[in-house]
Amino acid sequence: MQNFKVILLICSLLTGLNLPAQENMKPIPAGSYKPFIKGLTEKVAVEAFLLDTVQVTNQDFLEFVKANEQWSPDKIKALFADSAYLIHWPKNDWQNESKTANQEPVVNVSWFAANAYCKWKNKRLPSLHEWEFAALALPMNSLDSNELTQINHSWYSRKNSTRQPIGSVYENQYGIWDMFGLVWEWVYDFNSVVSSNDSRNKEEIASGFFCGSASLNASDASDYVSFIRYSYRGSLKGNYTTRKLGFRCAKSIEEN
């Protein structure tokens, strides 16, 4: 009996060792979904994974920048972020926590910066399919599939200057906050959508894009909200930063 108790104690300690890496993350169960851009298959399978319940905040990112000087606004290289990188942080006083660290989602960060942050946390950026799959979930206690459309449409028409903290728009049925309505979010493979910049060329296979690319049709031409989101990703490059673009991290479950 003594031995059994000891073994139990050791086991619980071992599992306890893994807890810190999962702070503020919730599991998204495995499943499949019909992606907005029709590919060669109709549905895409998504493995179970962990996702941050909220976006990375200014406070979180400040901690990262302080520990990794090359990502500070003074030292950043143009290849990794454009000239508007962290432009909302006070120029000569960004280290000052009282001025910079708050609970709003960090914006004006590039893919490279977001990717580096997630890795620093032993996490990674979510893939496009993971993000889209997690975003499908309706708000808690809702059965109305139109609610997400409403949230998006009222976000597009809200006054530009509004700034809100994390966890302020809606919590979805996976326990994830504000997939829509707060900021756009980086995904690991945002440049996976092979398309021309003119969104009307959906039927043609433009001469520059081939090698197995299926003709690009949206799976639902009335899903304007997805058109908007995919166009947004299509306008981005890896070193771009914008005032409404932030991110959250993910983690594969096997890595534990």
């Binding site: 910049n197 003119d198 969104s199 060329n201 981005l236 930063t241």
Partner: peptide, 23 residues
């Protein structure tokens, strides 16, 4: 982006001009 019907060119300029906010 922009498509000008006066343009003789791909997408009326739309192909050349998709821009993210701040660009």
């Amino acid at each position: 982006n922009i498509d000008l019907h006066a343009v003789t060119g791909p997408g009326g300029g739309a192909e050349a001009s998709l821009i993210a906010p701040g660009k």
